[in-house]
Design a protein around this nucleic acid. Structure first.
Lengths: 226, 226
DNA sequence: TACGACAGGATTGGATCCAATCCAAGGGCC
DNA sequence: GGCCCTTGGATTGGATCCAATCCTGTCGTA
């Protein structure tokens, strides 16, 4: 392979279908395609500069991830959750994230812990909901990032993705007290991780998710939208 | 393709890609495609009487389920697990199946309980490994069958599917004592369910899975096969 | 006016065709 | 003899084309 073989159609980083799937995932996360909105193959194909074949493969993958709902001969829609279904996702997270944290915690680096602390502080300081959501996601994902897992990490990320569209809505509904408690929990988790208290960190994350679940169960109006 | 296309219409119910995905899933479960074996698109297409397009969609879906591993421009293989990865799946099941059972248990019908008892008894009686695996899967899936869940039920089924190829191998390695304990646990679960003791049933299934995980961790030779 | 049949367009599903990539075997060169 | 390059076949990836299905608006009739 000569050094001049630059073969630089750089844009294509992996297959088209993976790229399209990642793009749709991202667009949904950013609220570009809200829950219940229709996904037309041709529109997506044009947007990502591909034909409909890789788009269809991407939609199949996203369906298996739970992000998209396919109906034969009808089309694809961004999955919409009822309150009960969202609670189910949170119940599941309540079980899985402590386990994932257990895998990750022992391998977190000092710089990770510093970053976690900075994120927790930044979250407490910001008033912008979008910024808060971004920081919150980074905080939790960073805490899991050192887990060497086959599927558990991906699984948790998927659960986050399916509920992401609703997070914004109910985050705004949290009162000052609730928000303060959330921030305390974040800081508690950093402390536990610094002390190498994995079990304490696990309990904290479990309580954190449970509290969030209860918060959203008090706000069914977020899901009623037709 | 002959001019008079008399090929049996292969009972096309639903899309081709769903059918193909289900078929591959089934073939893997039955050991027809062992872990690590390659899946050629054309061969699968011919087998299911479809073109390669729906096959590729099916493979994408199965990849998202964790059953198949895709490598760009190289091909698809049945996912192969290391011992550590298999333990991870069991750890995950340990957390999720009690939760799923909690959703299902209150809605189990008397006839379900009778069937569960019959299955537990039949399992204790049989000496055929294939038969045992079939009964075992039916037992557990039946215990979850009344759960009205969005994704938790599917998720657990997927975890079963990814480890199914290994179950046969280590089941044969269980000694008489271990086997007796497993049967006791099955019967205990039926009793707990009959008494409406959901928490007891949860504890039993958790212990059952943990015990199985420990059993397989003592038999790394099942996974070493290159 | 209400309701059902129907036609047209729009959209999805599937098959075939072509391009890009990979793998293995064989030949040339040091 | 060993190593690198090339070349052919095999396989995957993507695009275009065609068929099947669905949705919608319109017309006709009771």
């Amino acid at each position: 392979m000569s050094a001049t073989d630059v073969t630089a159609p750089v844009a294509r980083d992996g297959n088209a279908s993976s790229r399209v799937a990642a793009g749709i995932r991202d667009a949904i996360a950013h609220g570009e395609y809200p829950p219940g909105s229709r996904l037309r193959q041709e529109e997506i194909a044009e947007r990502f500069g591909a034909s409909r074949v890789p788009v269809r493969e991407a939609l199949r993958a996203l369906e298996a991830e739970g992000l998209v709902t396919l109906v034969a001969n009808a089309g694809a829609w961004v999955s919409r959750l009822t309150l009960a279904e969202c609670e189910e996702v949170y119940q599941t997270r309540e079980r899985l994230e402590p386990l994932l944290l257990r895998h990750s915690a022992p391998h977190l680096l000092p710089e990770d812990l510093d970053r976690l602390e900075a994120l927790a502080t930044a979250m407490a300081a910001t008033d912008d909901v979008g910024e808060f959501l971004r920081l919150d996601r980074e905080f939790h994902m960073l805490s899991y990032s050192r887990a060497d897992t086959l599927m558990l990490g991906d699984l948790v990320e998927r659960l986050w993705n399916t509920t992401q569209p609703y997070r914004r809505a109910y985050t705004m509904l949290a009162d000052a007290d609730t928000r303060r408690i959330m921030h305390d929990e974040h800081h508690l988790m950093v402390v536990a991780l610094r002390e190498g208290d994995v079990e304490g960190a696990e309990r904290t994350i479990e309580g954190h998710i449970r509290r969030t679940r209860r918060l959203l169960s008090r706000h069914p109006e977020v899901f009623s939208a037709e």
